[in-house]
Write a protein that binds this DNA or RNA. Structure first.
Lengths: 336, 336
DNA sequence: GGTCTGACTGGTAACGTTTCCAAATATACC
DNA sequence: GGTATATTTGGAAACGTTACCAGTCAGACC
C-alpha cells in the first residue's frame, strides 16, 4: 500500500502539505491541493489507521462483549450499538461467548481480548461477570458500560430497564383478563434481571390475593428447548392453570410448540405471556403477547454514555425506560 | 496507560530487554525477566496494538460485512466466523447494512469502512454487490472472500452450497411423500441463490411430469411478514395445493402462522417445507421440515481460505458442501 | 593467562501519521 | 519600493513497539 510519503513525492510537495490535504486541516493552496488529490487517487492511497491511532492515542473503536448469539435477544442490541456508534464515526469490535462451560471465564477472556485491542471503551452484557470483575477490568479500561444489568457501585455506567416493573406489568396483564390460576416458567436463577421480573410478578399476584405457593413454577434456561420441556413437565405434574407466564419469549415459543403438539388450544384453554417482545414473538403461532422492554432505547443510552466518557461527545443519555405489554393473540380471558 | 519505556525504567533494564520479555522472543536472564515481569504487573502494562500493527504491517483483524442482522440466518454465520477466527488469534470487525434503501451503496460503504480500518482481510455476504464492485474492492484489499454467493471470475474466493441441488432436494422431499399439487413462495428475484433453488425445484418437478405453469408461485422478501401475506394471497387466489415450498424458513414460519389463523391444519391439510434449516425451524408450531444447508461448514471453509491468503495459515479448505433435508413435523403425505 | 564462544544486554532505526515551528512566498498598505 | 501581514510550505519530532547490531561479560578450553 502506498504511504503518504509516496503521495508527497508524486505530487512534488512536502510531507506536511500532503498530510494537510489528507486530513483536511490547515490551509493549502487550491492548485497544490488538487495536485495532491490527484496523486492520492492515482496511488489508491488510504491513511493507515494504525499510525493515526498510535499518534492520537485513540482507535475510534469500541469493544462489545456478547455472551451468545443464539436466539433473537441480542441481535437487535448489536444492531442498535452498531448504528449508534457509526453515527459517531466509531466502530465495533465484537467478542462472543461460545459455550456453556465457564461463562465467567469466557467473559473475562473476551473483555481482556477487547482491551488488548486498544478499544477506547467497552460494552459488556450478560450475567456471568461479578461486580469485582468489572472493577478489575475498570482499572485497565475505565470506559466501561454495562447493559441489561445493574451493579450498585457503578450504577451510572449501567443501563437496564426496570425488570421488577416488567414483572408487575406481566402480572397485571394476566389479572386484567381475569386469570387467577397462573403458572410460571422462570429463567436462570443466576440472572438478576430474571429474578427481578419473577419477584415483581409474584409480588403483584400477592397484592391481588394470590399466594406464591399456589403458583406452579418451574425454572429453565431461556431456550425454546427448555420452554418445551418445562411445559411438558408442568402438564405432567397435573397442575391446573389458565395462564402461563414465561420469563422470555424463547421459552414461551417452546411452550407454545409443546401445547400445540399436546392438543391444548392457545389461547382457548391456556393463555401464554412472553417477555422481552423479541422478533420471535411476532410470528409464533399464535402470535405471542409479550412484555415489551425498550431494549433499543436502553442500548442507545448506554452507547451514548460510553461515547461521552470516551470522547466527551455530549450526547443525550436517557435514564428512564418505561416497560409495557405488546398485545397479540396468545392471551385471552380464561375459559368459563 | 503505561508504555514499555516505563516498564524498562522501573525494572532498570534497557528497552530491548523489556521488549524481549513482553514478546517472549530472544533470550533474557531469568532473574532479569522476573524483574521485568514484576514491573509489567505493577504498571498494569499492555502492549499497544496500534504500535505493533504499525510495525508489523498486520492488524490481525478481519472485516465482516453483513447485510442485516434480523432473523436467524446470519447469526450462526457470525458465530462461526468468530470462533474460527479466534482459533487463529484473529478478531472480527463487523459492519452491518441497516435499511432497505440502497443496499448496494450500504455494502460498498461498509466494505470501504472496513478497509479503512486496516483489516487484513474481508468477508462479504449479501446479494447487493456486483461482480465489478468486488473487483474494485479487490484492488484496495486483495484478501476478500465472498460467502453464500459465487462470482465466476473469482470463484476460488467464493464459498456457497449448491442451491440448485438444494432446490432438487426440496422437490424430492415433497414428491417422495406423494405430493403432486405443490405451491411455492419464492424469495427475492435479485438473490441469485434463491433463483438457483427455485430453478432446481422446478426442474425436478418437471422431471416428474409436473409442468411449471401448474405450480402456483408467489414471490416475497424472505421475511415472516412476507410469508404470511403470500400464504394469504395464495389461499385467496383459490389455488389448490397439498404442499407448499418456501424459499426460506422465515417465510415458511409466516405461512405457518397464517395457516394456523386460517384454521388450516399443517401437515394435515397442507404440508409446509422450509429452506435453510435455521433455528427458526426448530420451534415453530408445528416444527418445520426444512432443507439443510451446511452453513457452518461453508463459513469455516471461507474463513480458512481467507486466513490462508492473509497469513499463509495452511488451513484445510473444504469445497464440497452436501445439502439434505431435516425432517420434522410439517411435511406429511397429502390427505387422501 | 589468553582466546574463543555463547548468553545476555542496551540503544538506534524504522513503521506511517500528525503537529508544530520556522522559513518562504505572496499580498496589502502607506 | 519598503515594510507589515497573511498565506502557504517543508521538515523535524513524536506516538509505542520490535528488529537489528554492536557491545559487555562470564565461563570454557587449551
Amino acid at each position: 500500500m502506498a504511504t503518504i510519503k509516496d503521495v508527497a513525492r508524486l505530487a512534488g510537495v512536502g510531507l506536511g502539505t500532503a498530510s494537510r490535504v489528507v486530513s483536511g486541516k490547515g490551509s493549502v493552496a487550491p492548485a497544490t491541493a488538487q495536485r495532491v488529490q490527484k496523486a492520492i487517487e492515482q496511488l489508491n492511497f488510504r491513511p493507515s489507521h494504525a499510525a493515526r491511532s498510535l499518534l492520537s492515542g485513540s482507535t475510534q473503536m469500541v469493544g462489545v462483549y456478547i455472551p451468545l448469539l443464539k436466539g433473537t435477544f441480542y441481535t437487535p442490541i448489536l444492531q442498535a450499538i452498531d448504528s449508534t456508534l457509526r453515527a459517531s464515526r466509531c466502530y465495533m469490535v465484537v467478542a462472543f461467548g461460545h459455550g456453556l462451560d465457564d461463562e465467567r471465564q469466557q467473559a473475562l477472556e473476551g473483555a481482556r481480548f477487547l482491551i488488548d485491542r486498544d478499544c477506547d471503551g467497552l460494552i459488556v452484557m450478560g450475567n456471568s461477570l461479578l461486580e469485582k470483575d468489572i472493577v478489575a477490568l475498570g482499572r485497565q479500561q475505565p470506559n466501561i458500560v454495562v447493559l441489561n444489568r445493574v451493579f450498585e457501585s457503578i450504577s451510572e455506567q449501567c443501563f437496564s430497564a426496570d425488570h421488577t416493573q416488567g414483572g408487575i406489568c406481566a402480572a397485571q396483564a394476566l389479572l386484567s383478563k381475569g386469570h387467577r390460576r397462573i403458572a410460571v416458567i422462570g429463567g436462570l436463577r443466576t440472572s438478576p434481571d430474571n429474578v427481578a421480573r419473577i419477584a415483581g410478578f409474584m409480588a403483584e399476584l400477592a397484592r391481588h390475593g394470590i399466594a406464591a405457593d399456589s403458583v406452579p413454577m418451574l425454572e429453565s434456561d431461556f431456550s425454546p428447548e427448555g420452554g418445551w420441556a418445562s411445559a411438558q413437565a408442568l402438564l405432567a405434574s397435573g397442575a391446573r392453570f389458565t395462564a402461563l407466564f414465561c420469563a422470555n419469549d424463547e421459552m414461551a415459543v417452546g411452550a407454545l410448540a409443546h401445547f400445540q403438539q399436546a392438543g391444548i388450544a392457545v389461547p382457548g384453554q391456556v393463555s401464554v405471556l412472553g417477555y422481552d417482545d423479541t422478533q420471535t414473538a411476532e410470528f409464533s403461532a399464535p402470535r405471542l403477547t409479550s412484555v415489551h422492554i425498550p431494549l433499543r432505547e436502553v442500548t442507545v443510552a448506554g452507547v451514548h454514555c460510553l461515547l461521552n466518557r470516551c470522547y466527551d461527545a455530549g450526547l443525550p443519555v436517557e435514564r428512564d425506560f418505561p416497560v409495557g405489554v405488546t398485545w397479540r393473540a396468545s392471551v385471552a380471558p380464561p375459559p368459563p
